[in-house]
């Protein structure tokens, strides 16, 4: 990341101005120009360093969700993982190093739909899903401090805390 991209991530991963021409306001904050900010974001997006710009939605307010784990026998892992990713209700799917080795988030309009999909998955895979809905949030994705340019491989410690609200 170049200096402008880094400043943009540091300042605006937790929130950006909600006003007409927000990139002009963001440019003022970091002492740059609107054109430079748009250019920096476009490059970052093209290189894959920017997921997106816009609203981040709260799943639990928009419907129902749960975290699910499956303990998949190694020989079946690729096939089951691929199958799980195909469900439109699955929006994160990770392999993790554990007996429960496949972890994914299910979202749907309501809990009844989640139960239905869990049943489908059980029938589909022959595995019993571990259903771990959130009971309380102590911290929800606000991003985390980014330190320097990790691609450059500086072995420095992570950034000091303080910019998370």
């Amino acid at each position: 990341m170049d200096a402008i991209q880094q400043a943009l991530c540091q300042h605006f991963q937790h929130g950006m101005p909600l006003c007409a021409e927000p990139y002009r306001a963001m440019a003022e904050t970091i002492g740059s120009s609107e054109a430079q900010v748009l250019d920096a974001l476009q490059r970052l997006q093209r290189d894959g360093g920017l997921s997106r710009i816009g609203p981040v939605f709260e799943h639990s307010r928009a419907g129902a969700s749960t975290l699910v784990a499956l303990a998949v026998p190694e020989a079946l892992l690729e096939r089951v993982a691929e199958r799980i990713s195909q469900y439109p209700e699955v929006n994160h799917n990770y392999l993790r190093e554990h007996a429960y080795n496949l972890w994914f988030v299910l979202t749907g309009p309501d809990r009844a739909r989640i139960d239905q999909v869990l049943d489908e998955i059980a029938a589909d895979t022959g595995l019993q899903p571990l259903d771990l809905p959130m009971q309380r949030a102590y911290r929800i994705d606000l991003g985390f401090p980014l330190a320097g340019n990790p691609v450059a491989g500086h072995p420095q410690s992570k950034a000091a805390p303080g910019d998370t609200p």
Binding site: M1, L8, C9, F12, Q13, H14, G15, M16, L18, C19, A20, L41, L44, D47, G48, G49, L50, S51, R52, I53, G54, P55, V56, F57, E58, R61, A62, I140, D141, L142, G143, F144, L146, N149, P150, V151
Partner: peptide, 26 residues
């Protein structure tokens, strides 16, 4: 803008932000 503000106030929108891809950033 007023709609976005209302949805943020009632919690449907957690935040409006530039969301880095932490994985791709290393």
């Amino acid at each position: 803008l007023a709609l976005l503000q209302r949805l943020q106030a009632n919690g449907l929108i957690r935040r409006i932000a530039a969301v880095p891809n932490h994985y791709r950033l290393g």
